[in-house]
Design a protein around this nucleic acid. Sequence first.
DNA 1: CGATAGAATGATATAACATAACAGTCAACG
DNA 2: CGTTGACTGTTATGTTATATCATTCTATCG
Lengths: 162, 162
Amino acid sequence: MNFERRNTGSKRASATLLSRAERLCRDKNLRFTPMRRRVLAELAASPEPLTAYDLADRVREEKRVAPVTVYRALEFLLDAKLIHRIVIRNAYTPCDHAPHHDATPVFLVCTHCGTVEEIPSETFQHDLSGTIAEVGFRPKSRVFEIEGECARCAKRQPASAI
Amino acid sequence: MNFERRNTGSKRASATLLSRAERLCRDKNLRFTPMRRRVLAELAASPEPLTAYDLADRVREEKRVAPVTVYRALEFLLDAKLIHRIVIRNAYTPCDHAPHHDATPVFLVCTHCGTVEEIPSETFQHDLSGTIAEVGFRPKSRVFEIEGECARCAKRQPASAI
DNA sequence: CGATAGAATGATATAACATAACAGTCAACG
DNA sequence: CGTTGACTGTTATGTTATATCATTCTATCG
């Protein structure tokens, strides 16, 4: 079983991701603006997830930006499923596994080097711990949380009237 | 299969949790100070997870406290495994399932009423989606993240030299 | 009992992450 | 070209979390 190593800033990985983004936006008629491209490029070029403020700093080297601008770009990229948010780091990382998953993948976040490995959740559903062992990752702590509507609320508001 | 409903502020649940905390601290020679007791009691009395600042407000009704004091109490309670942190809410909630799990449980967080249901992870490992369906929860999004040491780092620093 | 060492808390400041609100700019389309 | 809607700029502020150093409490020992 072989999981793609996270792009370690190689031009190849970035280029791939950027062109994927371009194609996707063309197809879905979304606007891949310079700011969005820039933010995605920074994420693709980074070996580890970056926070919004990290990104703001990097973009600022070239052009003055406020954090909120970065957050807006991130929101767009998240919606387009081009990136993920790594909750336990308050940080963002490009999506490695093209569009072939709608299910949330599992992320393996290294406490030492900070890199993130992305495991498609079909694999996960199947046999999580085996897979983790296979990639040589030594888990120390986990975040598994599911958000949704509880039974009582679902009963009260039958048609998901949120 | 029946998962305990989260304590909805009932005096019973609080009393149980508090006495469990007392016993645990006595046994392990930890100090269950008034501040720690107070924070735990507020969490136990709340139907939903509370943030550190929520807690500070509640404690302040009685006595002036700075957020940092609450964070310290929370840290203690987390270490003692008396509470959990709900990452996707930046909030804290009492631990419902006494000491019988070392494995991280799965939390079902209702987007509507905010309550949290705690599911032991043995069950989870076994058949997550089945269990969730059984309790009537309708998942909308999930956070499954694993922190640890990646294969490369483990190789570089054999004996987990962190 | 009083000294003292370690733990806990108080107080203040500041860092880090995120959003609100409104004004200005750009780009596509008729 | 002008209008509309999407995007970005700007400023302010909200929210979550930590750093630092002073003070108080508590258990223990001489």
